[in-house]
Design a protein around this nucleic acid. Structure first.
Lengths: 361, 361
DNA sequence: TCAATAAGCTAATACGAATTATCAGCGGGA
DNA sequence: TCCCGCTGATAATTCGTATTAGCTTATTGA
């Protein structure tokens, strides 16, 4: 019945202990060192009252008066708790949560952001981003305009996943896809492959030659860049095929026609589909076609195949993103220094072997 | 670099257009209807200035002024994004998130609560519970003392899962285990079973006769209560076996010795283990032993068996918990009216058939 | 002609915490 | 006795927005 019990304020604590609101504030912030002094006895009295009432500073008022509230915003372009279990985002969030717990921060899930055109928008009428000290951004591809605005406004934020500059350096903790993908190429070559193919959208970057131009997400572009560099180093052509908008059968046809012996798969799910079709046709996997997964499944893709390739250090990325963000908030690092790339973990798997010789002759 | 460009305020807009800050606020909030009037010409001038500057109201100051922050706290006794047991909590959180999004609320994960003795505590030194307008509690069993204190302090909160009174009614959105379990008994009887057994800790309540006494979680107690009532109605003895602290083999021995033909399993994982042992022994499932799962797995329990029984409406529970909480905050419902039990969905499954006749003779 | 009304706005204040400037009281030294 | 310095606290102000009471001018009614 008690309709919306009034919140306890510093004023209440002050009245209780017979001091002023200012004193309560000073005690709370442990200000006894500088030009302000509080008698130990008074301090104890105030602290006791705070403990007994369970008083907590209103983060909003605290923020207004321009202090920090130890709240970290988490903005995702998709719902955080999706139906499909074993989900792609889970490990990131796990890392974020672990780190936040360690740092004594609470996480504010910005669920109030309305969905327009199938995705959430950071900026809207009642933008509550600034409620938090800073913000972690999660999502395959972030809206470039929103990113630019965040940078321009000087917001404290970190992207999980590398991002190109957007009117300034974009703080991020990403995976080093370039190095990881190049390493995969080297492994394929070492196994005897000469006819490689990159399967995915990353190849689009090879057309729109500029770095920042295309609409290809950075993660795809980076994979392809690693592939292209390594291919060049090994004297191979940077062959690639698009996966989206085609059936796995069509893709397989193209690969076979080209005499490809090893395919690097950008999207795990595409690899699963491709493998299924290849098996149906009676191909020998991995003898006739080695497959290399460039990261973990981002879409549910049930399979019992242990793909060779590498794993994205998702949990660690979440963890470090949180750390970078707090450092950024504390002013301990600059925007441009708040960019990290973490190594991916190689996975041996069973889908990479030497190519069958009959195919080579 | 550029240290936080100063934000544009209503005061700035006011100076630009030669009006007062109050007028800007009034225009922004479309207040022209009531006892306040703004000349259309003035309104336009102000709106123009707002458009040209891209001014957006500071959400923090806005919330300070109306004392609600539309933040809902989510407190879990275990980490929210776990690797293993996460599958159980996921649907609750999904429902909470969906509902929060609809209601325009943000979720504050209270990750800063320190872990003591293996579990998080709500009340501690730097208790930040009151950061939010209200709070959702999630976890198998909530600490009774903490619950009592929450009630006593008049906090706005809702438990996901039914809870006994704790010095007053505890707002909750739970599953109606009593009815669901009774229905399962009825199904078993209808299938021809007369020798039932309840497997789990819920039976402990049959000893400590009082309602509130034991340390048995409400969800277990409710399941057993439904079982006991239904058994009595059908003229059966409320037979039960403990699962914890015993091997599945021991449990099976006890069931066989008693001539049990159908077992109601409190913990899904126990059912899986029991089925495995029964199969090893060459029992005919479900002919020799029908099994009824009283809810979804709370521990990871990989199985390909489609258990008969019922499903907990987890997503819906999360959803409604959020709604109840906001109603509570808004003062639209009283504490004692903020208690709901949702029906569980029956699952036909394949582990319930008529008992083999040879066993009965 | 003068009050009564109404239109159109502004001044003042609240919200809760942080911070600065200031003030009262006291003891000691000159 | 006066002044200084120190301690321990407080009044007042700030942050940006929302809201209410009230003020000024113009318009109406009788």
């Amino acid at each position: 019945m008690t309709a919306a019990r009034k919140r306890i304020t510093q004023q209440d604590i002050a009245r209780m202990t017979g001091v002023s609101q200012a004193t309560v504030s000073l005690v709370l912030n442990g200000r006894g060192d500088a030009d302000v002094r509080i008698a130990p006895e008074t301090r104890e009295r105030v602290l006791a009252a705070i403990r007994s009432t369970g008083y907590v500073a209103d983060p909003i008022a605290r923020r207004l008066a321009d202090r920090h509230n130890r709240i970290l915003g988490v903005f995702t372009y998709e719902p955080v708790f999706p139906a499909g279990s074993g989900d792609f985002y889970q490990p990131f969030l796990l890392g974020i949560e672990e780190s936040a717990e360690q740092l004594g921060c609470d996480l504010l899930l910005l669920t109030s952001a309305p969905v327009t055109d199938g995705r959430r928008r950071i900026f809207h009428e009642d933008n509550r981003l600034r409620l938090a000290d800073g913000c972690i951004l999660l999502g395959r591809s972030l809206d470039r305009d929103e990113l630019t605005r965040l940078v321009a406004e000087g917001q404290a934020f970190v992207s999980v996943g590398r991002r190109d500059d957007a009117g300034g350096p974009v703080p991020h903790v990403g995976a080093d896809y370039v190095t990881a993908t190049a390493a995969v190429v080297a492994r394929a070559v070492a196994a005897g492959h000469r006819e490689l193919c990159y399967l995915g959208d990353g190849g689009e970057t090879s057309r729109s030659s500029g770095g920042t131009g295309g609409s290809v997400p950075e993660s795809f572009a980076d994979r392809f860049a690693g592939y292209r560099e390594a291919a060049a180093r090994h004297g191979l052509a940077p062959r690639w095929e698009k996966a989206s908008g085609r059936t796995p059968a069509e893709v397989l046809d193209a690969l076979v026609a080209d005499g490809v012996t090893a395919v690097l798969v950008e999207e795990f799910a595409d690899g699963v589909a491709l493998a299924a079709v290849a098996r149906e046709r009676g191909l020998d996997l991995p003898g006739d076609l080695s497959m290399l997964a460039l990261g973990d499944p981002t879409r549910p893709a049930p399979t019992d195949i242990d793909f060779s390739g590498y794993r994205i250090p998702r949990r660690e990325m979440g963890r470090q993103a949180t750390e970078v963000l707090t450092a950024l908030i504390a002013g301990e690092v600059s925007r441009s220094d708040a960019r990290r790339l973490l190594p991916c973990e190689p996975v041996a798997g069973v889908t990479l072997t030497a190519p069958n010789t009959r195919r080579n002759g």
